[in-house]
Design a protein around this nucleic acid. Structure first.
Lengths: 189, 189
DNA sequence: GCAACAGCCTATAGGTATTAGGCAAAAGCC
DNA sequence: GGCTTTTGCCTAATACCTATAGGCTGTTGC
């Protein structure tokens, strides 16, 4: 019998694709086995359990998101950096809805500490260097940005802004302008 | 054999409690049957399927949330109204995490139209009457508020702000102050 | 060429969702 | 109060899904 060449790596990657296709909540070890044309039990040599698969997808998503963000941030500052970073989140969520959902999975503390989550926070703080905010304001601002980005993206994904004018893109631009003004401590144009 | 007195109403209500105890994603028809000391099949006379149970919990949560918000808003305006409304969301999510998650369930268009979702939007617009914003700014602002509230509450629920200073309450107050300033088009104090 | 290992398999057990069909309690009718 | 109808819960069965144990066989290393 030919071997399928399973790997934890390949399984997680395929799981991420599956998540984008059918939604993270419908990712299942059984479906994954089907895609590799292999019996379910075979996956358990590479994965402790289904939770590990989900965690793997979450970590992959966090990593990809951080990589994209780092890329987008290079050479930018101020409003430019804010826009670029925000768009990375929104675009990623739209291209990879399953992965994005996975990235919000609650990880246990150790796993979270070893994840790319820290890089995300660091990048937010880097953006805020363009606006002079001392502590504790800086932390408040990090939380505000995180809330707005995540909130907007997830409401948009849930279809909250479709079928109503003005379109989501316009509101997004308006929000980023106001956020920039807010952080600079000045009224918006 | 004594009858258990099952009702769609009672099942949904018990489902909501179950959600708060074990998390919305772990709400299951089987567990519900166990709680009523009844066989699983018995629930299917009252519920079309498990999706209907989840939808029911979502609608209940939206209703409760809207009721609380309406109550909190009565007799308030401006920043006062903004704070009251925001705190209703945050407090509800902390008291009833399962129900809150349920409220974010993606509903089909007809169900959504018949839900309390519309009241939520109406109340947001009522708050914004205290800040003079014409369309399309008003809609942008509704979306911003929705994003911030939902984003903050869900990041907080995911444990994103615990174990780090300053505490979540402080950031929340800061964010509401800035949001108020943003909507008034003035820099914050 | 052979021993050891690794990778996939069969078998099995238990959990969840859902449907079909049965029996008995409750409610309505005379 | 008995009789019929309805309704509520049950048993039985199917179909997935997760997970574990133990077996067979390519593959690798000596």
């Amino acid at each position: 019998m030919a071997r399928a060449g399973l790997t934890r790596e390949r399984l997680v990657r395929a799981g991420a694709e599956l998540a984008d296709e059918v939604g993270f909540e419908h990712v299942t070890v059984s479906e994954l086995a089907r895609r590799f044309d292999v019996k379910v039990a075979s996956l358990y040599s590479h994965l402790r359990n289904s939770r590990e698969l989900k965690t793997g997808i979450a970590l992959l998503a966090l990593e990809e998101l951080a990589d994209r963000a780092a890329d987008a941030l290079a050479g930018r500052a101020g409003k430019d950096a804010l826009d670029a970073f925000a768009n990375v989140y929104r675009d990623y969520a739209r291209e990879h809805p399953g992965r994005y959902t996975a990235a919000r999975l609650r990880l246990d503390p150790d796993t979270a500490a070893a994840s790319a989550g820290g890089r995300h926070a660091q990048m937010m703080r880097a953006i805020l260097r363009g606006y002079d905010l001392a502590e504790p304001e800086q932390t408040h601002a990090v939380r505000l940005l995180g809330s707005v980005f995540h909130g907007y993206v997830s409401l948009e994904a849930a279809g909250g802004f479709s079928h109503s004018a003005p379109d989501a893109q316009e509101s997004w631009a308006w929000i980023l302008d106001r956020l920039d003004a807010l952080l600079r401590g000045r009224p918006a144009g």
